[in-house]
Design a protein around this nucleic acid. Structure first.
Lengths: 357, 357
DNA sequence: AGGGGCATGGTAAACGTTTACCTAAATCCC
DNA sequence: GGGATTTAGGTAAACGTTTACCATGCCCCT
């Protein structure tokens, strides 16, 4: 069942069928009607592969994410896909789950699939891999790529802004012992967040204690383990900032299990402002990095390059800001912010929100 | 840069290049080496479209989900993709977000993309759409399709089992007023869960009060609104079962805002056992529907059909069980399970886990 | 030494479209 | 009314692979 069957049945040429389907030239209303009729009767669907092969454009955008399992990404995928649908594009999504092999595979898939552009939201890509992509003169948009490569678009995220706000917020409440649970430190984005934290601390004149900085994995479990680790310390932080919301949720969960009340005994702030954040108990104070905005920026960057029709993409720099969202997981530190050893679950009083400072 | 460039540079024919790349026939070690060298030097990647066009197989499986934004699905997508990678397959994922237009689009994309099979995890697909798919003699695997169609595989989920367990669990703790927050009732799966609930209640001799059953949307907000609605009732349920975990989280969040303690004043049980469930505060008692198992079942069903090589797929029935996972969001009802009007946030005592019954 | 069999690699057709080019008809303008 | 211009639709080449078919050369056996 191909275009020729349709042509035969409608008693026209394949060219006419193609033209009616793609509405690329005027075709007589009579003929068009016959064509559509034949298409419906036959249940004909054009073959995308053949189409792409001859036209040289696949109408597919690739989207490489770290871990679809992290709620930060589905939100992006969703709006990316919705945007794509509007433009009659398709999305080819793959997760790299921080694995070099999977990254290579992802790149290979994109190139072999001859996608028209790719958005890369996984933050630890090797430069050499990137080179393979650039070599094809594909429109590329990165979030936070390290080296500033020519001809690729970039969405630079201003982590520092939101993080500085958070540190100031905490400091304003007289927190002095602030810890940080990082993401996997092989990711540039995780390192950037951690650096911004340290920077902000120094800026404000607070000491950053190395033992208060522990590595997580941007997953729930990582937050949990990190907090366990922190709990073994002699002196403990009264506030904990986390490299993403999942980490913060893991921290809060472990605190709950240890009978440590959030925010009374421990303030925690997340990062990303995923949809979940506002649904945590207590609602999570976090730093927003708008997922819809990010997705829209990325998609439009790609679309723009694709429409430009030049031999090679242009590359543009975009900016995405971050900003503190106050909810109820932070408050003033209690006085006895000393040794709080790992205890069996104990009764913890739940208190009403008090900050909104 | 195509196979001919490689052939020229390696001084062999395109056939030889193809054969080396696909390892489909023995080729002389010397030649093969030359070919690989040429490929590396040129940065050649085969064109998937051309490949698919001539071979008739795209090595792509489609995956249609409801809402990637619901954490139930990313988990499935992840394991589906991992399985696919192992078999050198690709995944084309699309969300329908319960929208008929998007469903039609999804189906169209699958057919036009000439995928080798599709797994459908969106639960409200029209039969007519399904017919389009079946007509192409594509391997198809549904989760919970209503009418039992020939030649399509099905994964039947035994919702009743887990739900009965939950109802019994609640009843054993002397809950008598049990409510249910459904999913969107245009979804078969949502209806099935609700029906199973009512059935179980009757079975055990508990009254199901129509006003205790309120429709949600399988999202966080739906749970929140549903609980608000419930709170306006004169008499209120002491336990609430939810059609999925997101709904349960929404309910708990609203309860928190109203100062109603979970589980002391309200027991809640979820459905799905998403990864998040164990990280809620309190950890959510829920009904497990294994996402990895589901994904594996679906993937293997497709793979099996694809390997069968017959003219039309065969269709197999699979079973997936559900089962209650006890955590800490349920306990005995307090005595005064009467009017509990919507109150301003009040102090709510947090209690240690007590069930594990 | 000659012939059969096998291993290897080349030639070219085919996959299902789009589109450049061409032809024929219709329209327009003076 | 006739040439110029526009419009509609057909013919066939091209896209980049895989693979059926064929040719060649080598080995082995008698």
């Amino acid at each position: 069942m191909d275009i020729r069957d349709v042509a035969r049945r409608a008693r026209v040429s394949t060219a006419t069928v193609s033209r009616t389907v793609n509405q690329v030239a005027t075709v007589d209303a009579q003929l068009a009607k016959r064509v559509w009729k034949a298409i419906a009767e036959l249940g004909y669907y054009p073959n995308r592969q053949a189409r792409a092969l001859v036209s040289g454009r696949s109408r597919v955008f690739g989207l490489i994410v770290s871990e679809i399992t992290n709620p930060f990404f589905p939100e992006i995928v969703q709006t990316f896909e919705t945007l794509a649908v509007e433009q009659n594009y398709e999305i080819l999504t793959t997760s790299t789950i921080h694995d070099p092999t999977r990254m290579e595979l992802a790149v290979r898939r994109m190139i072999e699939g001859r996608v028209d552009g790719v958005a890369i939201l996984t933050f630890g890509m090797e430069d050499e891999l990137l080179e393979h992509l650039r070599f094809r003169n594909l429109p590329l948009v990165f979030v936070d790529v390290g080296p500033k490569a020519p001809r690729v678009s970039n969405i630079r995220v201003d982590y520092a802004h939101g993080i500085r706000q958070a540190v100031q917020h905490l400091a304003a409440m007289r927190h002095e012992h602030i810890g940080f649970v990082t993401g996997p430190l092989k990711l540039r984005s995780a390192v950037a967040r951690k650096d911004a934290f340290e920077e902000s601390m120094r800026e404000i004149g607070l000491e950053v204690k190395p033992e208060f900085i522990v590595e997580g994995d941007h997953r729930l479990e990582g937050g949990k383990f990190a907090f366990q680790k922190l709990c073994k310390l002699r002196e403990q932080p009264t506030a904990l900032m986390c490299s993403n919301d999942m980490t913060a949720i893991g921290v809060m969960r472990q605190a709950f299990e240890f009978g440590i009340a959030v925010p009374q005994e421990l303030s925690v702030v997340g990062f990303d402002d995923t949809r979940l954040a506002d649904f945590m108990i207590p609602p999570l104070t976090t730093i927003q990095m708008s997922q819809t905005e990010l997705a829209t920026l990325a998609f439009n960057a790609l679309l723009k390059e694709v429409k430009r029709e030049g031999p090679a993409p242009n590359g543009t720099e975009y900016k995405l800001n971050t900003q503190l969202i106050l909810r109820n997981s932070t408050t003033f530190p209690t006085n006895n912010n000393q040794v709080k050893s790992r205890v069996a679950p104990k009764r913890a009083a739940q208190a009403p929100p008090e900050d909104k400072a």
